[in-house]
Nucleic acid binder design. Structure first.
Length: 681
RNA sequence: GCCGACAUAGCUCAGCCGGUAGAGCAACUGAUUCGUAAUCAGUAGGUCCGCGGUUCGAGUCCGCGUGUCGGCUCCA
């Protein structure tokens, strides 16, 4: 047998006996390294992959030995933790069916099981304790490569029925199997050398999850958890999580008296005066942009004859998410009518062979069915069709803060982020096909400006392309997708593709931002639509240069998206500390004694006259108490007035967070605060 | 919509094996005139989410409903 030689990261070569593994390599360098290394990244030719330490090395390969500080190594650790989890579950629940964990690991690992019943929190504790035991036992992960039929037979012997299905999707003739303790699993690997390399694990939750993510299949039980390279890291992580929970917008909304929910209007926020103030300031900000970017605002109806939604396609495609009603017809009355019909027709056996209220009902004014709008677009199509449009008038950009209602299914709502009633900074741009590109570029610039103003630095852009089920010609789609892509390239923004995730009428750009708990939410969007204005829907046209009618193109777009969702995500982003221009209360005057009260009142009146939102804390409390409350409400400026300030006609300014800005005479103060509270843009 | 958990004073939460409900903060009243994150004392406050069941007796156990939370699915 000839020796092999591998290249180390520093470029040096190392010669090893044939068949040597990465573990051998590590050992040949130092015993300490061998102890710390958990996996190897191997590059051979153009191909780089992460492998087990026990995998034999190949001559000429470049090798990096990975310790747990490496991101790939941590991924492997999480993956191994999944196997330990499954081992524990199989031990504690004989007969448990194991399925699989995630394809790509985030910070968490999870594994889906079927034990014929849900796991209880007590089960979870027992499983975690068992995992701890398995880790302490420090047993190796052993890799085997076997032909597929043999693997099938093995899992059959083990009574694992899901593995059979998983084997069906694997195209290769050979598959790999990993074993640790008495647990065997089909797995592509790689794994840590042994279970003891996992330094700390914590199970974080149990929840239902569908087999293969398909609602029509079995409901499995998903156990999720996290693995750490040290106990310290784990402690730190959960401390951070606690911090993040403090920034939960639902909690902040309550504490800062911004909004609340009531069971009589499920998932529909009530905005209190402070919340409404912020909400309206956001609208005001967007309105200012509309002037700059050439939008006209319109106000359109809330409720439409459902004929509109039949034309737009919502009646067929969005019915489940809509609210419907009839003028003056309550459920109580309807029940009475049904009883009446049944009474009148008690001898008519064929009654229910047709609709109870007959075909004519739909045409009868008394029976007109209405739908509450879930989107503004159908209404805007009516508005566009209301008058004739010349190519000279395009693009026509119409904005609408109309309130939308969507009947979201129970279990999907989430604070302000997913509600049943909301309004968007929504607009539709009607333009000629030639104008699409420029409109998209302009919009992306607009978004850039806005997200920068709100200091969202981590906005992820996704380009959702044509879905399988779609309307419109391929040529239209080519053009629309290209327009979106080129616009992004033009403004040099990074983005990822979401293949097949576009709307049925057109591709879209989605702008996503993460909340405090790392959940991603879509805010802005722009969509290119050739369908709604098309001949089968609203047939919207403009008069071209030749005097003939051409079909117009419709762009759907929103900047902040739903104002409710934006406010929720933004609240978490800033931890409740609104910039002064948005703060519901910009300054609070804190008189120390009653003697300071009359000057405090005068000052407040003068600041209010300058359009500032200033309150006066006239309660008979100590200064420390008032400062504390102003701070808890995140008021940007506390203006302290004692006898000294009364005499000198000014205030001592305390900035939110505790910074002392010292004494300011009234004129200087007014100039300072007015400047601090100026809306951007 | 699916799986699980939870629902007690305005808020945050305790309430054991089923025996007639409690704290802190807030509110109210009074005293205190105070210099940068909580002054003191007193008073009042409850459909224990709703409906039904088991029981001599239910905040507590069971069923159904509603809402919320964590996931899944969905999100034109």
């Amino acid at each position: 047998m000839t020796d092999i030689s591998v290249i180390l990261p520093d470029g040096s070569k190392k010669t090893l006996p044939h068949g040597a593994t990465a573990a051998d390599l590590a050992l040949s360098i130092s015993a300490g390294l061998a102890k710390a290394v958990v996996a190897a990244r191997v590059k051979l030719g153009a191909k780089t992959e992460v492998r087990d330490l026990q995998a034999p090395l190949v001559d000429g390969a470049q090798v990096w030995l990975l310790k747990l500080d490496d991101k790939d190594a941590q991924d492997i650790m999480r993956h191994s933790a999944e196997h330990v989890l499954a081992t524990a579950v199989c031990r504690l629940f004989p007969g448990a069916q194991v399925t699989m964990g995630p394809r790509d690991h985030g910070k968490e690992f999870y594994y889906d099981f079927d034990i014929g019943r849900p796991f209880t929190p007590e089960d979870l504790e027992r499983i975690e304790a068992e995992m701890q035991k398995l880790i302490t036992e420090d047993k190796p992960f052993i890799r085997r490569e076997v032909p597929k039929p043999q693997a099938r037979e093995e899992f059959k012997q083990l009574g694992q029925k899901y593995k059979d299905q998983i084997l069906d999707w694997i195209p290769d003739d050979n598959v790999t199997i990993y074993q640790n303790h008495d647990f065997t699993d089909l797995c592509r690997g790689p794994h840590l050398p042994s279970t003891g390399r996992i330094k700390a694990v914590k199970l974080t939750g149990v929840a239902g999850a569908y087999w293969r993510g398909d609602q029509s299949r079995e409901m499995l039980q998903r156990i999720s958890g996290q693995a750490f390279t040290s106990k310290d890291e784990m402690t730190k992580h959960f401390a951070q999580l606690e911090e993040a929970k403090k920034r939960d917008h639902r909690k902040l909304g309550k504490e800062l008296e911004l909004f609340f929910f009531d069971p009589l209007a499920p998932a529909s926020p009530f905005f209190l005066p402070r919340g409404a103030l912020v909400y309206n300031k956001l609208v005001e900000y967007v309105r200012k942009l509309y002037v700059k970017y050439g939008y006209d605002e319109v106000v359109t109806p809330q409720i439409f004859d459902t004929k509109l939604f039949k034309t737009s396609g919502h009646y067929d495609n969005y019915e489940e998410n809509m609210y419907f009603g009839y003028g003056g017809l309550s459920l109580r009355k309807l029940n009475g009518l049904i009883r009446q019909v049944a009474e009148d027709n008690k001898d008519n056996k064929d009654l229910f062979a047709k609709d109870v209220f007959g075909d004519s009902a739909e045409e009868d004014v008394e029976w007109r069915e209405f739908g509450v709008k879930p989107m503004n677009c159908p209404g805007h199509c009516i508005l566009y069709a209301h008058s004739l449009h010349s190519h000279r008038d395009l693009p026509m950009r119409i904005a609408d803060f109309g309130r939308l209602h969507r009947f979201e299914k129970g279990g999907v709502t989430h604070g302000l982020a997913r509600v049943r009633t909301f309004s968007q900074d929504d607009a539709h741009i009607f333009c000629t096909p030639d104008q699409v590109q420029a409109e998209i570029v302009s919009f992306v610039n607009l978004l850039d400006e806005v997200y920068r103003a709100f200091e969202f630095n981590d906005v992820r852009i996704r380009l959702a392309t044509r879905p399988e089920k779609r309307a419109g010609s391929d040529a239209d789609w080519d053009r629309a997708e290209k327009a979106l892509e080129e616009a992004l390239m033009g403004v040099k923004r990074e983005f990822t593709f979401s293949p097949g995730e576009g709307a049925f009428y057109g591709p879209k750009l989605e702008f996503h931002v993460k909340d405090a708990l790392e959940r991603s939410w879509q805010l802005g969007t722009i969509q290119v639509d050739y369908v709604l204005p098309g001949p089968d829907r609203f047939a919207l046209t403009f008069i071209n240069r030749e005097g003939a009618k051409d079909q117009v193109v419709m762009l759907h777009r929103a900047i902040l998206g739903s104002l409710e969702r934006f406010l929720g995500v933004y609240l978490e982003h800033i931890g409740g500390k609104f910039p002064a221009w948005l703060a519901p209360e910009q300054a609070r005057i804190l008189p120390i004694t009653d003697e300071a009260m009359s000057y405090a009142n005068e000052l407040r009146a003068r600041l209010l006259a300058r359009g500032l939102r200033v309150d006066l804390d006239a309660r008979q409390e100590k200064l420390g108490f008032k400062v504390r409350e102003a701070q808890l409400m995140q008021v940007p400026f506390a203006l302290v007035i004692g006898n000294k300030e009364v005499a000198d006609k000014g205030v001592t300014v305390r900035q939110r967070g505790g910074k002392d800005l010292g004494f300011m005479a009234e004129d200087a103060l007014t100039a300072f605060i007015v400047k601090e509270c100026t809306m951007p843009g």
